[in-house]
């Protein structure tokens, strides 16, 4: 991969001046992904913070071809773009020759929830694209409502913490595993503070033929209730506390790509953001224990799968044979 210096000299393909909040994790995800793409790209974007804040008509922050259609259909939209690319290339009618990469950006709501069907369909059909979920763990654009990516016990406006409720009652869905179960060539979890890991994953995803997926933790100061200057620190804390493991599943083989040097207690994570503040008051001990148990269980599961992959020399998830195109 290119050096940090080289990367820093590349033109920014998401221009400054957009209206995302100070400290927004989503724009960091987009810039890192775009900087990692050496090829020309076409981007599809789901309805959500990223879309509304980057393209207020008549302005656009996107210096690459970009399309927003609706909330739940980003994967379907990019599959149409990619299908058109393939047929025009075959017929010799492309306005521009040479390789093009197809990217989709969507929030966790547009990916875990309402967009899951379209995503699953596009993964199964085998279009070549990289789908990036900037995961801020709630519907932020509409005002911090819970999604199936929202962690257990978090306060959101639709699953608020109150005298009779500790916030969200369910743990989050394991979307990365669901995506990997489609046996696509590449799926990974990443975080904005590990730029080198994230950009390497983009490179590996783009090198694969077929659909690929990145689930990137993207802190949201407004929704998570932390200072706008803390975004990167909060992301680091998520990884060091084990709540957001960093791994990839490449051709069915799982590899933990970053192991925190020090493992910090989950309570530090909970104490770092206003959305968990209520959990630290007396009465929520059992819930905190449950969160800790789940973090441990996931970490063990990932390590087990990684070992299994190393022992069998490959697939602990199944390989995908590759698709016809």
């Amino acid at each position: 991969m290119a050096s940090l210096r080289e990367i820093s000299e590349r033109p920014d393909r998401l221009s400054p001046g957009h209206r995302l909040c100070a400290g927004c994790g989503a724009s960091i995800v987009v810039r890192q992904v775009l900087l990692a793409c050496e090829e020309p790209v076409v981007v599809a974007n789901a309805t959500g913070c990223l879309e509304v804040a980057t393209t207020l008509y008549p302005y656009t922050a996107w210096r690459v071809p970009w399309i927003h259609s609706a909330f739940e259909n980003t994967a379907a939209t990019i599959s149409g773009v990619e299908a058109m690319y393939r047929v025009l290339r075959r017929k010799g009618r492309l306005p521009h020759n040479g390789p093009v990469k197809f990217l989709a950006f969507a929030g966790d709501g547009g990916t875990y929830d309402i967009g899951l069907q379209a995503l699953s369909g596009a993964l199964e059909r085998g279009h070549s694209f990289l789908y990036v979920c900037y995961n801020n763990e709630a519907y932020m654009n509409t005002g911090i409502q819970r999604s199936s990516a929202t962690p257990l016990g978090a306060h959101t406006t639709t699953a608020p913490a109150g005298r009779a409720s500790p916030g969200k009652l369910q743990p989050r869905k394991d979307l990365t595993a669901i995506v990997a179960a489609h046996r696509i060539p590449y799926a990974a979890q990443a975080s904005v503070h590990l730029w080198h890991d994230l950009m390497g994953k983009v490179r590996r995803a783009l090198a694969a033929e077929g659909p690929t997926f990145l689930n990137v933790l993207a802190p949201c100061p407004r929704g998570w209730r932390h200072a706008t200057s803390e975004t990167i620190d909060i992301a680091r804390l998520a990884v060091e506390c084990g709540v957001w493991p960093i791994y990839e599943v490449a051709e069915g083989r799982l590899r933990i790509t970053h192991r925190p040097r020090t493992r910090r207690p989950v309570t530090e994570w909970l104490a770092s953001q206003g959305r968990f503040a209520h959990l630290l008051e007396p009465g929520h001990e059992a819930l905190i224990e449950q969160i800790e148990r789940e973090v441990e269980a996931e970490w063990e599961r990932l390590q087990r799968l990684e070992r299994l992959g190393a022992e069998t020399g490959g697939s602990n998830g199944p390989d995908r044979g590759g698709t016809a195109h």
Binding site: E72, N73, A76, T77, I78, M84, A118
Partner: peptide
């Protein structure tokens, strides 16, 4: 596609392409 919603969404992407 896996639904008509996605079928027309793919049409939108393809036509814009």
């Amino acid at each position: 596609a896996e639904s008509e919603h996605s079928a027309l969404s793919a049409c939108v992407g393809a036509a814009a392409a």
